[in-house]
Design a protein around this nucleic acid. Sequence first.
DNA 1: CAATATTCTTGACTTGTTCAAGAAAACGGA
DNA 2: TCCGTTTTCTTGAACAAGTCAAGAATATTG
Lengths: 150, 150
Amino acid sequence: MPLTDLEQMLRGVGLRVTRPRIAVLGAVNTLAHADTDSIIGKVRADLPDVSHQAVYDSLHTLTAKGLVRRIQPSGSVARYESRVGDNHHHVVCRSCGAIADVDCAHGAAPCLTASNDHGFVIDEAEVIYWGLCPDCSTRVPELSPLEGST
Amino acid sequence: MPLTDLEQMLRGVGLRVTRPRIAVLGAVNTLAHADTDSIIGKVRADLPDVSHQAVYDSLHTLTAKGLVRRIQPSGSVARYESRVGDNHHHVVCRSCGAIADVDCAHGAAPCLTASNDHGFVIDEAEVIYWGLCPDCSTRVPELSPLEGST
DNA sequence: CAATATTCTTGACTTGTTCAAGAAAACGGA
DNA sequence: TCCGTTTTCTTGAACAAGTCAAGAATATTG
């Protein structure tokens, strides 16, 4: 993704254009479902001296402006992805934590309606499918999920 | 819930019956969607000297045996509930973090099928509805979600 | 009641993330 | 282009939730 595009994205949501932000946005676009640590690593390939705090700040800002999406399945650290606005979901491997995208099961977003909303004003239905990834399910078929490390 | 019932539940899944486990199981049954800290507090009402580690251990064991369910929406600490096996879901308030139960939108569990499973062996579809609880939505109607604390 | 396996206590430690103060950089206007 | 203002970044400390590990205590089996 060309540099000017990243710049456009930042300006488009009213953010100042800074090197750390461009690098972070680029990293999230390149890496799939990356955690903060991987993003810091990728960013430092271009800008060796960015502080981890700058990355955290950038991720928060970009998330607040909707340029990236933050996901955090139970037991995982925060992860970020660039595919936003299409309400897709995720499959997560119980054994190794691998994440893959899954298109919305029922068409347009939000694809689900709560049967009883308890008076909540709902704006999003997030779906996480839990299971075993191809590698884990074939490698240790007799192993019960979540107990692989004991 | 009578003490013997809790005992039965533990024995039923092949666990030793200990005071901490009974207290933890009782606490999770009493409190709704409680975090570990609240559970520790509740447990110490009965057993003032239990270590936090014993509570963590018990919660892990009970979760592994399916007597309690662990939920952890993004940005929240781990929470536990006693309603297990019926594949119900949750609404979470973006502003205050309140959680309420929601029955499964589509009947029997698992109520959803991934459109493309990427070869994952899926055993559960977890749904989290995000929005504002009645209190938060009426109290600060002009406030944009997630920015209430800035 | 004794033997054995499991569980609990104690206390240190890790990890991911946030806080805070000042230095540096980006943007708008002269 | 330069200046002033506002925002962002750096630095370094702090924090909370949860985990690890070794030995003491307890539950269960025979």
